[in-house]
Design a binder for these strands. Sequence first.
DNA 1: TGACACCGATGTGTGCAGACATCAAAACTC
DNA 2: GAGTTTTGATGTCTGCACACATCGGTGTCA
Lengths: 241, 241
Amino acid sequence: MTSSLHHRAIENLGTRIISGELPAGHIMLAEKLEEELSVSRSVIREAVRVLQSLGLVETTKRVGIRVLPPSRWNPFDPQVIRWRLASDDRGAQLRSLAELRSAVEPAAAELAAQNAPAPLRLELVDVSHAMRDAGHKGEVPRFLELDIQFHSLLLSGSGNEMFANLMGQVAETLTGRTVHGLMPDHPHEAALQWHVDVAEAIARGDASSAREASDKIMRRTMSQMSDTWTEQPRVFIPVHR
Amino acid sequence: MTSSLHHRAIENLGTRIISGELPAGHIMLAEKLEEELSVSRSVIREAVRVLQSLGLVETTKRVGIRVLPPSRWNPFDPQVIRWRLASDDRGAQLRSLAELRSAVEPAAAELAAQNAPAPLRLELVDVSHAMRDAGHKGEVPRFLELDIQFHSLLLSGSGNEMFANLMGQVAETLTGRTVHGLMPDHPHEAALQWHVDVAEAIARGDASSAREASDKIMRRTMSQMSDTWTEQPRVFIPVHR
DNA sequence: TGACACCGATGTGTGCAGACATCAAAACTC
DNA sequence: GAGTTTTGATGTCTGCACACATCGGTGTCA
């Protein structure tokens, strides 16, 4: 069902808005969109309604469908993130996600040490050991898979559904990092040990150690990635009063 | 346009799903919804599309409109958060937001110290001083207003649009805390000073001090609020493979 | 006789076309 | 300039054709 007309219309407009092809303030008419995409009124209307709920457009009678500025987009929506990752803003989006991750994961580690169910703790330890092995052997694809699983378990184990929801985005950034050759074949030895430290601290319920080790991982990750996006301009969203 | 039929339909179904009145797995028929809400097909269809994009329902031909379990909801969507805050899950939602905030704000403080534009830094210092005054004088409404502004400026100053987007939710939790009488008339003296410390550290570009002071605020806030939600069950979202 | 694969009937979402209602921007009048 | 009318876009309603997943019946084979 991923190629319904409705879905394709959303994809078409969403991509074009976020890429900047349809700039903020640009006005579209439902009728024009109908013929442009060769679909009926209902398809366009339903698509516009979804884009409206994502903060990408607003509709005004007697005017049309107005494209909204980036400050109005919902930056947490998975679709918006995906579109931004596919646009020129890719670097800025990756940086934002990395910053969010590095803030959240240590907190998730702390919470997981306090709340995670026992089986999850055991699995986390297993995965961390397997990561170390795969890292030593230079098994890149297997390492990536374990890496994703490790961080997913960590976020999920926090028992905070917002943290857990970041699993998907984290997986995408980790995959992207590997695919784009930003990962060495043999991960840093200390980083491997930190993953084990996080897992074992969580296993024994040591919240502050878990946070500390996770924080080390995140700080290293950030410093590794930061040179990729030093050129990305930052966006300061005004405080509305 | 906040009371269009479309909007009311979304509101009606969204609240009922998140409140649990329409449980996961429950199946609705578009036709039934039409007569139940006394609106036409197009209104229902557009509303269902939006709920679908929020992860609240899925549609299957020959079956109907199926309500999805909470693990599929987009926990970052402002509407979903609002509906959860209005439901029995209120406590769990507040806890999740507080945990997210306490993870993000220190990171935002660190980033703001590195990146915030100069005028924003100055305003932050002014607001922190005004907060201290209002706190001493026991001016509760003004303090709340300044508190919201302080934390909004902080998040906005990070230059991370995801952090900045949390302004709305933070404002709502701060307001809720005050309205529900969880805030003393005279805020803790140390907490007032910590706000000033954060602002001044940001003003002079001292990232680690800014983070540290912000961390103190967050840890105190968490320990203050934690007794309110100790009974809330945690939800562990399974890791899909 | 029983198990299993096939296949058509059924019901529901998806997509289409056209009409009228509504309402805010724009044009007009005074 | 203030108030009024016109206009043109979205909002809402309705009837229809189509796609297609599910279910139950039918036929085949062991």
